[in-house]
Design a protein around this nucleic acid. Structure first.
Length: 481
DNA sequence: ATGTCC
């Protein structure tokens, strides 16, 4: 007797390949269909898939399988016959791997595919890397005059921002409750959420002429305005913590000691996500790559579409920065603190940089810029320290470092295997106050940040240590209002 | 990451 769980088990690409399905876009179409299974068990579905494969003509009128059947009949050989298909190089260029033993195979495989693109100049993978769409998260890729929307990522301009206050660590313990109120009052979390009416933020980004680039971008402005100053969901947070300088830092003009600080992690919200989706779609139409590389579709930077994406990406980056600025301004005002120093860095973006003496486009998808003396923030987890770092300018990493600890447990794995009580006890042991936050963001779901930092000693110097104390994230129920 | 498929 089958349990419901067994019947509902998902079908993955390997199941279909085992049936004899080809490794091209047919696989994608077939998997999409599986999402609306209409009560069929896994076994029944696999049987159907086998029938469609052997006689697609019988399924052209089938409600569920007609798109797949049609795909087989008039599409199956298309990608191979397409005269515009761009060939990958046979052997991938070498790329530097940091922290290899902790990086999942899938991420390395994705990096190898990226290294075969004809536009690729160099690549590197950071010790917190894991699989993503196209380029892995933690992947760094330098290209020649080409921009890959999925090499930047969905959350364009996602970044860290740190404000160090003129307040001693003791302030946190003395004002715990009012800090909590400040955090709740001045932040907004949850997918789709933003500010309305009198609560909408004002910022000069709204006057940016890049919003007038084309009607597609123009149409995104209203929602961008409403989400200005919000944080979103997933691993995004706004947190108070204590930052510890073991010695004076002259460049930041901070004296040795421990200070209250605010650390934020978020990106360009729906605005950037919509831009990423739109230009990935355009790139895929223009740049026909073999199946395995399709999410690495790129735009020539000199083409109209490439220019538009570049402008939109930069606008999304500035928008993400504005979101952080608003949060930091509101909170500094609310607690009446003076800001001694501010550090900010994006980790999902592309830049024009010089590599080996030539101008290249450096994509950092979940990687911290780490050029010589450039400051960045690498967060650990709620219960593990994050680090204020200064780049060493290591060319092998294409002047980059990790953007965090990286996951050791997938979201679904964390939700399944961790109990809320256990997470609460763990947070208590570390003296962490958490507002919101789902099980998938539990600290145990992340790798050991110390191991990650050890793997990138050649890439960054640690300037100060940040210990989170009070964390706000989207809560589990954030999808409802 | 994103109201998770226009």
């Amino acid at each position: 007797m089958k349990t419901t769980e067994q019947q509902n088990k998902p079908i993955n690409g390997n199941d279909l390949i085992a049936l004899g399905y080809p490794e091209n876009e047919i696989l994608g179409i077939a998997l999409k269909i599986n999402k609306k299974r209409n009560g069929y068990t896994k076994a029944e579905m696999l049987d159907k898939y086998a029938q469609v494969l052997s006689s697609p003509q019988d399924f052209l009128e089938d409600k569920i399988f007609k798109t797949l059947a049609k795909g087989f009949i008039d599409g199956i050989h298309l990608p191979l016959q397409d005269e515009n298909l761009i060939e990958l190089n046979e052997n991938p260029n070498d790329f530097k791997i940091y922290g290899a033993e902790k990086i999942e195979d899938g991420a390395l495989e994705q990096m190898k595919v990226a290294m075969k693109l004809p536009v690729t100049v160099a690549g590197a993978i950071m010790p917190d890397a894991h699989q993503g769409y196209g380029l892995p998260i933690g992947g760094v890729l330098a290209t020649k005059n080409a921009i890959i929307p999925y090499g930047v990522g969905v959350d364009i301009g996602c970044r860290m921002a740190l404000s160090i206050y003129d307040l001693p660590a003791s302030h946190y313990f003395e004002h715990h409750n009012s800090l909590k109120e400040t955090l709740v009052k001045n932040t907004k979390f949850g997918a789709g959420h933003g500010f309305h009416g009198q609560y909408k933020a004002e910022h000069q980004i709204l006057d940016d002429t890049k919003f007038e680039t084309n009607s597609f971008i123009q149409n995104l402005k209203d929602k961008a305005w409403s989400q200005l100053g919000s944080s979103g969901g997933g691993n995004h947070f706004v947190e108070f913590g204590l930052i510890d300088f073991k010695e004076d830092d002259e460049k930041l003009n901070i004296k040795k000691g421990s200070y209250l600080a605010l650390l934020t992690h978020s990106g360009s919200r729906g605005f950037g996500a919509t831009i990423a989706g739109h230009y990935t779609k355009i790139a895929k139409e223009i740049c026909k790559l073999p199946y395995k590389a399709q999410n690495l579709a790129y735009l020539d930077l000199d083409s109209a579409e490439g220019q538009e994406y570049w402008i939109a990406m930069n606008l999304a980056g500035e928008y993400a920065s504005a979101c952080h600025e608003i949060i930091h301004q509101k909170i500094a005002k609310s607690i009446g603190a003076e800001v001694l120093a501010k550090v900010e860095n994006h980790h999902n973006f592309a830049w024009k940089e010089i590599y080996n003496g030539e101008e290249v486009i450096v994509h950092r998808k979940g990687a911290t810029p780490a050029s010589k003396d450039i400051m960045g923030i690498i967060p650990g987890s709620m219960t593990a320290p994050g680090f204020l770092v200064r780049g060493k300018g290591e060319e092998n990493s294409i002047n980059s470092a990790s953007h965090g600890a990286g996951r050791q447990m997938s979201r679904t794995q964390a939700i399944k295997s961790l109990s809320q009580n256990k997470i609460n006890d763990y947070l208590n042991d570390f003296g962490i106050t958490l507002i919101g936050g789902g099980k998938d963001e539990a600290p145990m779901a992340y790798k050991d940040i110390h191991e990650v930092m050890a793997a990138q000693q050649d890439l960054v110097d640690i300037v100060a240590t940040f210990t989170p104390k009070m964390v706000r994230m989207a809560d589990d129920g954030s999808r409802e209002d």
